[in-house]
Design a protein around this nucleic acid. Structure first.
Length: 464
DNA sequence: GCAACTGTTGCTTA
DNA sequence: CTAAGCAACAGTTG
């Protein structure tokens, strides 16, 4: 998982057995992991390792005759010193050293590797050319102007962009933003100079601490064989989904930002434009509406995605597109033909996908618009039938899932004199497994034993 | 047993 | 041009 501190730790761990050693022989077991050509790469044979350095997450080996090897560990790259030629199948590149050790680049996922450059151009001809400054070397004003250019990119993705700031990966980006009290989804252009200062102060502090502790040992990463880093014990965001925030006690929320798993504290890291937002989901007749009413009575502004969809279906341009996707019969006399649409979606999986691909982004856009209108000082609750795959998974701060057993659903329906079978059939595709994975809290509706409001009341102390 | 998830980057596509 | 999505790969987890 090497980010800047892990690479620095690896660099320091290599010094003892690598510095001043001559490369007596080279074995390349997987050509994809070296650059440029095999023939050129083999020219490191006979050279001596004169010094080691690091830039961002890149490790740099300076060799004699002005040759420079640039290494990147990507996800799981490691270096081992082996005492004999007993290599494992993930040793991709091996150098026999003059001290008798075999210096091995080992990479289970085969993403990383070594590239050969020349001292005169390695800073401009290699990936290092595009590398930004490390947090210690940049002023808040310069970071601010780089972020302005990233516009709508989420701040987390922006500080992980190695051309903006070198060294932060998924773990330390989460840690930095938690410490700096900035929501990872905040748009880069909305980050102030003062917030840039906090990002720099906290990232420097955290990276320094991590280097001090030998990096974080997560899964397979070890700075040396049999040696663990200790920083994993000082991580407060990464890997702490649904645990209490160490600063305020609110449950840490996990979402996806820029395609990466992201854990943050919704209370410490508040968005500037949006309210604290609960996403409420659950099968039909599980008790969602009761829960929504409960939160409304507590002053929450409600947004109902079903309602938004209904409203979209009254718009001319939407109906036109729906017609294009489902066929002419989908709309008659300027109104959606519900019967036809229901049947069409039931039998044509592909059409359903297409319609969702068109509709969901519109719903998301509308939800965000309404949340922005509600503003950061209020609280909001977004009700959505099916959360997984809706595109709304990452807009909330707390995902509440309401579930109830089939028996209790039937009982509720019976008491209300409604036909049970038809409604329950609608729920058979409800993605419970995925919903559970997204949940901050699952509330089981066991009506009539206990009113759902009572259970929710027990939760509300969190949101005050 | 299959599907989803994982620390990174860069290339393809929109 | 930017920005998102996915591929590169293999092991682990539910």
């Amino acid at each position: 998982m090497p980010e800047l501190p892990e690479v620095e730790t690896v660099k320091n761990a290599l010094v003892g057995l690598l510095l001043n050693q001559t490369i007596e022989d080279v074995f390349v077991f997987r050509e994809k992991n070296i650059k440029p050509s095999l023939k050129e790469f083999l020219s490191i044979k006979g050279e001596r390792v004169s010094s080691l350095s690091r830039k961002g997450k890149y490790l740099i080996f300076h060799l004699t005759n002005d040759k420079v090897l640039i290494g990147h560990l990507r996800m799981e790259g490691k270096f081992f010193f082996r005492e004999s030629e007993e290599f494992d199948k993930f040793d991709l590149i091996v150098m026999k050293l003059s001290n008798g050790f075999y210096f091995c680049y080992n990479d289970v996922r085969k993403f990383g590797g070594l590239s050969l450059y020349h001292e005169s151009d390695y800073l401009t001809a290699s990936p290092l050319a595009k590398l930004g400054k490390e947090p210690w070397d940049i002023e808040k004003e310069e970071l601010h102007s780089l972020l302005q250019a990233k516009k709508k990119t989420p701040i987390k993705a922006a500080i992980m962009d190695q051309s903006v700031l070198a060294g932060l990966g998924n773990i330390y980006a989460d840690e930095t933003l938690l410490a700096a009290k900035i929501d990872p989804r905040e748009e880069a252009k909305d980050i102030t100079v003062e917030e840039c200062e906090r990002i720099l102060i906290e990232s420097r502090r955290i990276l320094e601490e991590a280097i001090e502790l030998g990096g974080s040992t997560i899964k397979s990463y070890h700075p040396q064989k049999g040696v663990d880093g200790m920083m994993q014990n000082r991580l407060y965001a990464y890997g702490h989904k649904n645990e209490d925030c160490p600063r305020c006690g609110f449950p840490m929320h996990r979402i996806e930002v820029g395609g990466r798993g992201t854990t943050y504290c919704p209370r410490c890291q508040k968005r500037k434009k949006y309210p604290f937002t609960i996403l409420l989901t659950g099968p039909i007749h599980s008790g969602k509406s009761t829960a929504a009413s409960f939160f409304a009575s507590k002053g929450y502004s409600l947004i109902d995605c079903d309602q938004i969809v209904k409203e979209l279906y009254t718009k001319k341009d939407v109906l036109k597109s729906v017609k294009g996707i489902l066929g002419k019969k989908a709309v008659s006399k300027g109104v959606l033909n519900k019967q036809f649409v229901r049947e069409k979606l039931g039998k044509d999986r592909n059409a359903k996908k297409k319609l969702e691909a068109y509709l969901y982004p519109l719903v998301k856009q509308e939800v965000l618009k309404r949340l922005e209108a509600i503003g950061p000082k209020q609280k909001a609750l977004v009700e959505v039938q099916i959360l997984p795959g809706s595109g709304l998974e990452d807009i909330g701060d707390y995902n509440l899932v309401i579930l109830s057993s089939k028996e209790s659903q039937k009982e509720r329906l019976r008491l209300e004199g409604k036909p049970a079978e038809a409604l329950l059939a609608l729920n058979k595709d409800w993605p419970e497994r995925k919903a559970r994975l997204l949940s901050s809290q699952i509330v089981f509706n066991t009506y009539p034993e206990k009113e759902i409001s009572e259970k929710l009341e027990e939760l509300t102390y969190l949101f005050d």
